[in-house]
Structures are given as structure tokens and as C-alpha cells.
Design a protein around this nucleic acid. Sequence first.
DNA 1: TAGATTGTTAATCGATTAACAATC
DNA 2: TAGATTGTTAATCGATTAACAATC
Lengths: 213, 213
Amino acid sequence: MKAANEISASVIGRLPRYYRFLCELQNDGIVRISSGELSKRMGFTASQIRQDFNCFGGFGQQGYGYNVEQLKNEMASILGLSTLKQAILIGAGNMGRAVARQMNFAEMGFRLSAIFDCDKNLEGLKIKGIPIRPNSQIAEFCAEHRPDMAILCLPQNQAPEVVDELVLLGIESFWNFSHYDIHAKYPAANVENVHLSDSLMTLSYKIKNRENR
Amino acid sequence: MKAANEISASVIGRLPRYYRFLCELQNDGIVRISSGELSKRMGFTASQIRQDFNCFGGFGQQGYGYNVEQLKNEMASILGLSTLKQAILIGAGNMGRAVARQMNFAEMGFRLSAIFDCDKNLEGLKIKGIPIRPNSQIAEFCAEHRPDMAILCLPQNQAPEVVDELVLLGIESFWNFSHYDIHAKYPAANVENVHLSDSLMTLSYKIKNRENR
DNA sequence: TAGATTGTTAATCGATTAACAATC
DNA sequence: TAGATTGTTAATCGATTAACAATC
């Protein structure tokens, strides 16, 4: 059992995957599982799995393994999935709309409470029942509803100004789909970047350097 | 200078970021840069930057630093961005449409040559000028055009069947937005996963365990 | 009890950082 | 030439894996 601040990013990065697999196991009606069996299914070593779990205290039982439901609940709790977190979305373009429509926010404890876009023509349109508001209403909305985080789906050139405003309004966490580097200006911010073009370039590298067998 | 197959995933994962920053530097009219200056801007150590570049042979000059344009071109070449790669998109739902519309494929050497969806109602609709075809045409299209990779934007339950088909048709590379674990069944496939919900769960963890300063 | 499997310590491996000689 | 900065080797650090005693 380690203190929360000394859990390494490598471990944290594996937690969602554990959670996903445990949900599937539970759906399949599997009640208990050993680290060895989990290893086969997930492609991590059994040793690593046990090490990871033991960062948060032992959830298993010698000679038995882990109870799937209990372990899943522990993961959910560690990830904070049952804490309600209010989110706002900035940018209702292609990606913003896709994210708003596609993600099951509630399942992870998020509530998407507002959508903003600088395009006046979109004002009043609804996505998933949530009306699109003009960016000029961001300040008022945040003052009233105090969202925990912002989802940034806007072009890089618009990002700096909006992020400045959001930080001033007290928002500390960002799910960032733009290429704007929030950490450079706000090193203390909580940022999770989704850089689709980086991912595609990585695939390009893999395609180019494909081992021909 | 290392062989392509011994470049570590950590290094490869940083290449797109180098490329992005170098493009910006070039846009800003900056001609030369030292590893120290790059370090400040990118947040990697100068040592790491030099080590990374030297995996591919030295691109710098002692006492001078690196030429931005040359280095950018080297990165593009390493990433294979100027090799033409043909891509097909499977699934024209929210995420599929957003990806098709939003990504600048050409900029990275990709050409999106077809879009497929199992929903007959979408047949014939066009996204970015590309008509949506029924899944039943996948085989014929692949036989004729031999795409290099498939973008998977379909629900997890539809994925196994489609991936089986695509692999049989000779597709080896996947940009996978679904939760289906391609590597589990096809360990030799080239897979780049985009797991948005994993990313959001990671952010949830960070929000929950935020250090209060 | 005997077998299984964890929790945990120790060993290994790989990645990052530091240092510095080479050299532009 | 002197100063700057690379390329590269060595040192450090952290993450992964292996081993095994504890124990269910």
C-alpha cells in the first residue's frame, strides 16, 4: 500500500484496463480469478498484476485469488468513478459532437452539464438534450455551477484564450483534444491529452517499419 | 544509430511530439535550435532529446545545434509520413464521422479511400466526398484497392467479425477506436488503440487524487 | 492437511539523466 | 582560437520480472 502521490504513472495507466477486463469478467459471470489467469487474458505478467494491486492494498486471498466483483469495485473506487464530476464541453465541432454523443459519461461518474461554441449559428441547438451556448456565457455558467473539468474540442488557435479564462474561473482539470500544450503554461493543471494525430503518426511509423515475416 | 526493430516504444511515442514542435518552430521562422532550448519548450531533458535523435543517427552539429527544417524532415521520414498509405474506415457513427472529417490524413501521408457502415440507411451518403458503402462490399473493395490499414470506429460487439474478415483480406494495421482487443487474437497485427474511456478514467483518477495546494 | 495463490522482497532489465570528450 | 553544443559513455533511477515465504 502506497500513498496516492507515489503511485507511478505506469501503474495508473493500467488501471482503466483492469477495470474494463473486470467488468467483462463479471458480465461473463466469472466470480473469482487468479493473477495467472488474468495475466493470460490481459497480456500483463502475473507478477505485475499483483504488484499493481498491492500499490492499493491487497485485494486477494492466498490460495484463492481475487473476487471479480470486489476487485472491480475497488478499481472503480480507486479511479473515482463513483464520485460525481461535472464537466463542460468547449467546442461543438466534429470531435466535440462525437465525444458528447458517444461517451457514456454517467458510467464513469461524469455529468456533462453544458456545451459551448463560439459559432453563434449553433446557439440553441441541442446535443443529447444539452443546448449549445455561446462562449460569452462560460464565465457566468462556471460561477454558478462550478464544473470540475472542461473538455477541450476546439482549434489550437482558440485554445490559449479559453484555457486562460477557464483557469481563472477555477477549473483545474482538462480533457484536452486540442494540440495546445496546457501544461507548458499551467504546470499545476490536471491534464489528460488525447492527441489523435500523434496516435496516427505512431501507426504510420509502425506501418513503415513493419517486420515482414 | 540503432536498427529499426530495437527502437523502444518509449522513443517512438515521443517522435510525433518532436515532429509537431518542429513544425511549429519552422512556422515561427526559427532556423536552428539546440537540445537545451528544445528541452525548455518541450519539457523533455536535453539529454533525452539527444539520446532519442541518436537512435536514428546524429542530425546535429557540435557547437551549433540542429537545423529545424532538416530535423523536421528527418522526423517526417522516420515516421513514414511521406509514404502513401491507403486507409479505409469501418463505422460511420459519431466517432467515425468525426475522425473522417477532422483528421488531416493527407498531411501524414494517409489517403482515406473508402467508408463502410453496416447501416443500410447510410448507404450512398457522403463524408468529405467519400460515399458510405455497406459492409458487404468490404471484401471486393479490399481485393481491388489493397488498403494498408483500417480505422475501426464500430461497436465492440461488431468488431471481432469485421477484424477477422479484414485480416483474411490481408490488412495488417489497425487504428482501433473500439474496445475490442485485436492483439489478443492477432498478436502479429499492427495496432494503435485509441481508448477514449481509458483516457477519461485516468483523468477521473487524477481529479480524485488531486493534490490540494 | 495439501495445493494453490497471494503479498512481498530481491534480482533484473531498461529507460532516463549526468558527465564529458569530441568537434564544429 | 574560444565557446557552444553535440554524440556517446557511464551512472542512476525506476519499472518489471522472478522467487519464495506466508497463508488461505
